[in-house]
């Protein structure tokens, strides 16, 4: 068996298995850890796709940043106090059914999908390539992203801070 294939399935099972665990755990802390596993799996997939820059970003931003934020909040508000309560909506079968229907439809469509012919990546290094693309073709979103983060900062501070 090809090593690539092995890693693909390994990372896939991490990503999907972690995801499944994350949405089924009772304890939010356990869910967060499962999510970390899943995100690591996704990072592995990036590596297989030769997106090294994203691999690093995924680990630093997601696992270093977002997950930490989650854990921080979970600890702060003592989320696990709600462990004994009902974990799913009363009408969860509806949500599951809707998702299943949509999933079947999308899967059927996907199985018939035809992609355009593949192209070769340029030989330049991944980070360089990403940087070139980002700063030449995607300058606008790059600038707008600063606005986005500004709003996020102002907003989360505003909402989370105690009344003066």
């Amino acid at each position: 068996m090809n090593l690539d294939v092995f890693f693909f399935y390994a990372f896939t099972s991490l990503a999907l298995g972690g995801g499944l665990l994350a949405i089924t755990r009772r304890s939010a802390v356990h869910a967060a850890i499962a999510l970390m596993v899943s995100l690591l799996g996704v990072a592995g997939l990036y590596l297989l796709l030769q997106a090294e820059f994203l691999f690093v970003s995924q680990i630093i931003v997601y696992i270093g940043g977002i997950l930490l934020l989650f854990l921080f909040v979970i600890m702060l508000v003592n989320l696990d106090a709600g462990k004994g309560l009902r974990q799913f909506h009363k009408n969860w079968p509806l949500g599951a059914a809707v998702t299943a229907l949509a999933g079947i439809a999308l899967a059927v469509l996907l199985s018939r999908a035809q992609l355009p012919p593949p192209q070769q990546m340029p030989a330049t290094g991944n980070v360089e390539l990403v940087a070139d693309t980002l700063f030449q073709d995607y300058l606008v979103p790059f600038e707008v992203a600063s606005l986005l983060l500004l709003v996020a900062v102002v907003g989360s501070v505003l909402l989370a801070r105690k009344r003066a």
């Binding site: 995607y138 606008v140 979103p141 707008v144 992203a145 606005l147 986005l148 709003v151 996020a152 102002v154 907003g155 505003l158 909402l159």
Partner: peptide
């Protein structure tokens, strides 16, 4: 104004985030 997917997406998110707050 945007006619490019990333611009549209980031614009949408900037607006939506402001609205959430």
């Amino acid at each position: 104004t945007g006619t490019e997917l990333i611009t549209l997406f980031i614009g949408l998110e900037t607006m939506s985030l402001s609205f959430y707050v």
